[in-house]
Write a protein that binds this DNA or RNA. Sequence first.
DNA 1: GTGAAAGCGCTAACAG
DNA 2: CTGTTAGCGCTTTCAC
Lengths: 350, 350
Amino acid sequence: MSRIVNRGAASAPTLADVAEVAGVSRQTVSNAINNPDLLRADTLARVQEAIDELGYVPNRAARNLRTRASHLIGLRARPAPEGTAHALMDRFVHALVDTSRTAGYHIMLVTDDPEDRTGTAGYDDLLRSTAVDAFVVTDTHLDQPQLAFLESRRARFVAFGRPWADPDAGHPWVDVDHAAGAALATEHLIGLGHTRIGWIGWHKDSRIGEERRSGWSRVLKAHGLSTTAMASRVEDTIASGRSAAAVLLDEARPTAFVCASDTLAMGVLHLLDERGLRMGEDLAVVGYDDSLVAQCLPGGLTSVRLPLEQVAEEIVAALEGLLARPSYVGPGVLLPPTLRVRGSSGPRLG
Amino acid sequence: MSRIVNRGAASAPTLADVAEVAGVSRQTVSNAINNPDLLRADTLARVQEAIDELGYVPNRAARNLRTRASHLIGLRARPAPEGTAHALMDRFVHALVDTSRTAGYHIMLVTDDPEDRTGTAGYDDLLRSTAVDAFVVTDTHLDQPQLAFLESRRARFVAFGRPWADPDAGHPWVDVDHAAGAALATEHLIGLGHTRIGWIGWHKDSRIGEERRSGWSRVLKAHGLSTTAMASRVEDTIASGRSAAAVLLDEARPTAFVCASDTLAMGVLHLLDERGLRMGEDLAVVGYDDSLVAQCLPGGLTSVRLPLEQVAEEIVAALEGLLARPSYVGPGVLLPPTLRVRGSSGPRLG
DNA sequence: GTGAAAGCGCTAACAG
DNA sequence: CTGTTAGCGCTTTCAC
């Protein structure tokens, strides 16, 4: 062995060091790690022993260079705006990190570079430079141009969110059945005896917002109940939710509200607070997202809970498909949310 | 040039491709990227042109292998428990991602492998395998053994949280002055006219909890007010906060509470809700962490806000020191929190 | 089953 | 200021 090996404890042991200690070639050590079944049991044991003795850990950079893969997934996410109940990110991120780890991947966080107008050049570079193997993108409804750009660049990514513009988009996606969630909420209120159920949702250009709204209107219609003058479309802030509720309450006299988000639902509760009305008794309210706010609020806010752990699992599954076969698309996955019933929706009107 | 270059658009262009197009050597291209001032202006321009033309992006793995650095920072963090107001993570993580990016680093998320009893082997491997250059650890109060382990392994990391056990610990740290936050809250209540101010905090083994508590007791004593029978130490849950408040309220009749967390403060509000008392009028309440819950609650929960953006900046600064000089320690940094005044603390008792 | 050779794409050190 | 040489540590041929 002409190679100079083992330059002291200062630098980490390499394959060659392990090979020397185990009395085998470097290749055999590599096989012991990556294809253990290729080795005879006793050789494998000897190599393993040497690995343990030296505390050998394969060098990631070298492996990445050789295999042209980083085993890193870029997660593109935005911070929750302050003053908003929106807290799914924390839960989703952790679910994704956990699921990814079991699949051998790590999650790298990526945010938009404010300098970059398109908000995509950075992702492209990360992919091209082999910094990440693929992306998970989360705000697909907001950034249609970004999606198109990523696709045109043949970037590998899985979307949390349907490709609204193009149902047959060339990328895997996972989404929650938003209409089903709103339907669940509305059925729940009808079951409680409500017949005048209002909707406070987002502006029409929000696909998710329209999707959620459709669940509400579908169920009302199915029960022969009126949706006329019962709905409002506003910005996703507490203040907007509050004023929308004020108008609707005065003009249409609903006994319950389904809201497109916990933030809007909190707006309704702000109004109740101002008017001295009691949540759940004078007015039932259901939110959407099952945020920490919904969970912590005195009395509790009934809310639609997204199956984020399942979403993460499906995303990782799609990711594995994508990385095994670059052209992989796979069927879009639509997951049903559930309803968390709390004080804001009753129990009453029996 | 004997090397075979440019195997078609299929694979990404390399340094050699750029060098050929620009008519220079590979090293010159490397310099153009990493030490532009070494080149003559016209050479640099020619190389830059070739880079743009080819859409060249340096291969990360190759660079990492060569420089023995990944430009990746591992962030060790836990998910917020459900039913807890605790929402600093989202804000902190994003602050850290943003600050890191400007310093040329990306954030990789790491959670504990439930299989791993010590909860440290994974970090060690990541460091040794050059997957990450350093760590940011966040729950230092919870895991003293982990800290000791990381130090003993000479792992590079910066802690968000003081090294309570050993003030002269061998690693950089950044923390928030928790006592100052509680003091701020207590002063605020005294300024409002309160003289009987209770404390609902965490168990004695929580260093942060004791730190926060000391701010409350110090200020009361400084004003000649009594702390006797005014404090309770419980678990960080809404239910515990609620029952602690019930006992204290009945026995010591405080007119205000300072709480060690927004979660505990929510517990107090739950009790008020049950008893039909009005927050801010019948009882003032101040929380800690300025969670989304505090921000969204009708009336608003007055709360101590941690300067997480600054914490992130200081951490990145320490990280840069650490990566420049492996033995870098630097002085611990203690940052002052601020108070966000909302409805739960008055304005009253004038 | 195991070993030898080659090279992934880059940069540190030196020579010119 | 530019070019040449020599690897970083690993894995993919292909012999043996």
